[in-house]
Design a protein around this nucleic acid. Structure first.
Length: 390
RNA sequence: GGGGGGAUGUCCGAGUGGUUAAAGGAGUCAGGCUGUAAACCUGAUGGCUAUGCCUACGCAGGUUCGAAUCCUGCUCCCCCCA
């Protein structure tokens, strides 16, 4: 544990992208009181993935140094839609869904955060304001200022639509900082503009401006784009252990150091092979969210599937119905794996379907029920169902 | 208010009367190789009661033997001028 403000600042900023203004965080720390460290989250999707945990872990570090995290659940801003990094306007989110998401989001966030040092607030508390108050807020910034933002500038330049509501978003986020008197705000680099603008807005309201710390954006398991649910390249903290483990094993080697840097407590072990380094990563992160035991089980299962090319022992059952003693395989595949029947036929034709480990082919459109009962139906490498006539 | 441009499959994007379920790319899925890495190779990629049938190129009509392509109306989006 660092024992001086200078050391603490160095520790906290070590894997951050930027700490702005230069040296400001150290000054904040010199006040010697617990700082109010803000993170705003719009509960547009219910699930936290590893990408979110990068910032959450940083917050946790602040907490471990005695500071207070103010987690703002953006129930109001979610209805506006953060335009950051977006190339087009977002759909309007449904209020009920936002509420539900907010609850699960908090639960998941506490897998990383210290509950006792976290203050949870909803920005609907103060953003549900009178028009007159909105006027005051709207006067704090200019269109030119807002258009400096990359994504706005790009969209404007390309002639894509930007709604007034979207322009308003950074102001609302900035007002959050005023409302909770934040000393520090964290965010991904994509939040840089918003969190900096908040400083101006705080000052316009006569409040001391916050320090800003931006964290790197975690790449997804494709190693290409940022981790995001909509891109399907994410690892959710609430996913089953075998999914967490398996997905992490698919991370490209070149992305692995970034994962270590942003997600792991221990540094990468140079003495290990790339494969084992990745296993350590997968094991460590699975254990963090599910415990050591579950992580070990997940690894064992992984080996069975992908090293031994075997069948896992906890295969889910699928009841099937036979007609005149035969089963229409495209229909069975569709039911069991959520495919269309046409997809089922294609998989059969491409030897993508196995029955007890033996590939089937396009001649297996209809199979006798007795051949299927009790057998394991497999699609690709990792989708299994144990068949049971029902 | 005036003028111009546009809407195609998961996404991007060709196609301006017929061999178009619709080029190409991306993504995804499957097979091979492997460390379920990357790279690479192969194939598939609207649905179905499947050698055929149905649905699809913003929406609704129309012309035609035949339309994503032509005409009319409508909806939505963008740009320029004011």
């Amino acid at each position: 544990m660092p024992d001086s403000p200078g050391e603490a600042a160095r520790f906290l900023t070590r894997n951050a992208v930027e700490a702005l203004p230069e040296g400001d965080l150290e000054k904040q720390l010199q006040q010697g009181r617990p700082l109010r460290v803000k993170l705003g989250v719009d509960p547009t999707t219910p699930d936290i993935h590893l990408g979110h945990t990068v910032v959450l872990r940083k917050l946790r570090e602040f907490q471990d140094l005695g500071h207070t995290v103010v987690l703002i659940v953006g129930d109001y801003t979610a209805r506006v839609g953060d335009p950051s990094g977006r190339s087009s306007a977002r759909p309007f989110a449904d209020p009920d869904e936002i509420d539900r998401n907010a609850v699960t989001y908090q639960e998941q966030a506490f897998k990383v955060l210290d509950r006792d040092r976290t203050e949870v607030r909803r920005n609907g508390e103060w953003l549900d304001m009178a028009m007159e108050d909105l006027f005051r807020l709207a006067r704090t910034s200019t269109v030119a200022q807002l258009l400096e933002r990359d994504d706005f500038a790009k969209r404007y330049g390309e002639g894509r639509p930007i709604t007034i509501l979207e322009l308003l978003y950074p102001l609302l986020q900035g007002y959050d900082s005023v409302a909770i008197r934040s000393d520090v705000e964290l965010g991904g680099t994509d939040q840089k503009f918003n969190v900096l603008l908040a400083r101006d807005i705080q000052q316009a309201y006569g409040v001391a401006p916050q320090s800003v710390l931006t964290m790197p954006i975690l790449p997804g398991i494709d190693g290409e784009q940022k981790m995001s649910k909509s891109l399907g390249n994410y690892v959710g903290v609430d996913e089953p252990p075998e999914e967490v483990f398996g997905k992490l094993m698919r991370v490209p080697d070149t992305t692995m150091p970034t994962y270590y840097d942003l997600l792991m407590d221990e540094p990468i072990d140079p003495g290990l092979s790339a494969r084992d380094q990745k296993r350590a990563l997968a094991r460590g992160l699975t254990a963090r969210f599910h415990g050591d035991r579950a992580a070990a089980d997940a690894e064992a299962r992984f080996d069975r599937l992908h090293v031994d090319h075997g069948v896992p022992d906890d295969v889910e059952e699928h009841a099937f119905a036979a007609e005149n003693g035969t089963v229409h395989m495209p229909a069975l595949l569709a039911d069991a794996f959520g495919l269309s029947r046409s997809e089922g036929r294609r998989l059969l034709a491409q030897a993508g379907v196995r029955l007890d480990g033996e590939p089937l082919d396009e001649s297996a459109i209809d199979l006798p029920a007795e051949r299927l009962d009790g057998a394991v139906l497999q699609v690709g490498r990792r989708r299994f169902k144990r068949l049971r006539s029902g």
